[in-house]
Design a protein around this nucleic acid. Structure first.
Lengths: 250, 250
DNA sequence: GGCGGCTCTTGACCCTGATCAAGCGCCGCG
DNA sequence: CGCGGCGCTTGATCAGGGTCAAGAGCCGCC
């Protein structure tokens, strides 16, 4: 991970550093470990291997394909996009990562990042050294369990899109997913801003940008959503979920 | 896992059971652990939590969606297909699992199997209790590492198909992948039999069965492969890989 | 404040692959 | 041995979404 330039100066946060502790509990990881019954009095064991990095500016890369894998990272703020490009420049977007979500889990197997990760807006991260985390996981079963769970979850997420669905179904499912993820982090599920371009959405959903534009308009004309440039409002949550039901396998 | 009926009578294999040991080394899992520097003299620790199950006959289910998750399994013989169906009966195939490959890793996060697994031909499995394996993993770092690696690998595999490729590219990539996987297990990479129907391939590749049929014919007419019902020969491996290069990201 | 560039939208047309339909061949069963 | 069923193939047609092209709105920069 090319964090040298943007990395904050000190390795952050001891257990008695109240502010940092509260702040870092916004990382999915720490809080998930707590949820998993991790002994709070030993929380410093987790925190000593955490390093806050950023801010990454829009367009700045967090890591690039092929770089040696050293750490996974939880998004603290902003949105990260992971993607690969084929030789003729076409881009496949693997995912968007919102605050509280983890990037880098797909790098373990090859010990190299298999994709690029770029900030779509100003981004801050919690960086976890993976070797240290794995060592810790042998002593703290809750952390091991949590890692297994997160990895397994990502397999499921990756196969979600894999089905053969219409442009409308896919776009609706994407919007519902975003809505749920924002809701899970305490943001409004019905009103949020799209931090990625139409082209990014298209490359994620395997559509042409023009199709994204057209389908969004159709969804708006049908009264499911309201889109104003990148400002997004869900006006009929139930209706949208109905459109998405095949993809999301309700 | 609904193995009660077909499960072999005894929980199999102590470390000094030479035959079983050799046999079980065909499980990806055991051998991978060995590769990872696992102390062979302690191999029984792994073997006591292994249970050989099967044979499952063609069409018989190994597990079904929604069943509580208890174990992952390595395929010893035969092919397993995992799939989900939406309410109007359309099937999405998530994967095919050949000897040496692991099923059930995507079940960890929800503690339920998120898909169905069915035998496409006579199948034998090595069943690993996941809770026991996780416990063992805390004591044996090689096993933990291996589990992380396998999980991470599956994330990558799941995103392989996710790109937007032509029918020909997808089918070529599928064939190349099959070829490599057979080669990795010591089978011929150029001549093998397709254990799944055209419809299964179609549901895996997001195509219509008719398209699979047509594209196979085209690949045959162009001299890349020879297909005789389910007997498959790669006649131009390099050419096929070229067709598949976008998908496989060579 | 105006220019230039980029993202997004909208329209027209086209192509890949889905769908519908029919026929074939292999295989199991009576 | 003949019948029937299923999986596969092949042909004809159709449509969803891609591509190409042009224009509109927003924004930053000079």
């Amino acid at each position: 991970m090319s964090t040298a330039r943007t990395r904050s100066a000190r390795p952050v946060a001891t257990a008695d550093d109240g502010d940092e502790l509260r702040f870092c509990s916004t990382c999915a990881f720490s809080s998930a470990c707590l949820d998993n019954g991790y002994d709070k009095s030993r929380l410093h064991e987790l925190h000593i291997l955490v390093e806050h990095t950023g801010p990454y500016r829009e367009g700045e890369h967090v890591f690039r394909e092929g770089e040696p894998f050293g750490a996974i990272a939880a998004v603290r703020a902003g949105t990260v996009k992971t993607y690969v490009t084929d030789r003729d420049g076409r881009e496949t977007v693997l995912g968007f990562f919102l605050p509280g979500e983890l990037i880098g889990l797909n790098a373990i197997s090859q010990d190299r990042y298999p994709c690029n990760a770029v900030a779509l807006e100003s981004v801050a991260l919690c960086r976890f050294s993976f070797p240290m985390m794995a060592t810790l996981a042998t002593r703290v079963p809750g952390i091991q369990q949590q890692l297994f769970k997160l990895l397994s979850e990502d397999i499921g997420k990756a196969s979600l899109l894999s089905g053969d669905y219409s442009a409308e179904e896919r776009l609706a499912a994407f919007m519902v997913t975003l809505s749920r993820r924002y809701a899970a982090r305490g943001f409004s599920p019905t009103r949020f801003s799209l931090t990625m371009s139409r082209t990014d959405m298209a490359n994620y959903l395997r559509l042409a940008p023009e199709t994204v534009s057209r389908v969004l308009r159709r969804l708006q004309d049908s009264g499911f959503v309201a889109v104003e440039r990148r400002e997004f409002t869900v006006t009929d949550p139930a209706g949208l979920e109905t459109l998405a039901r095949h993809v999301l396998r309700v």
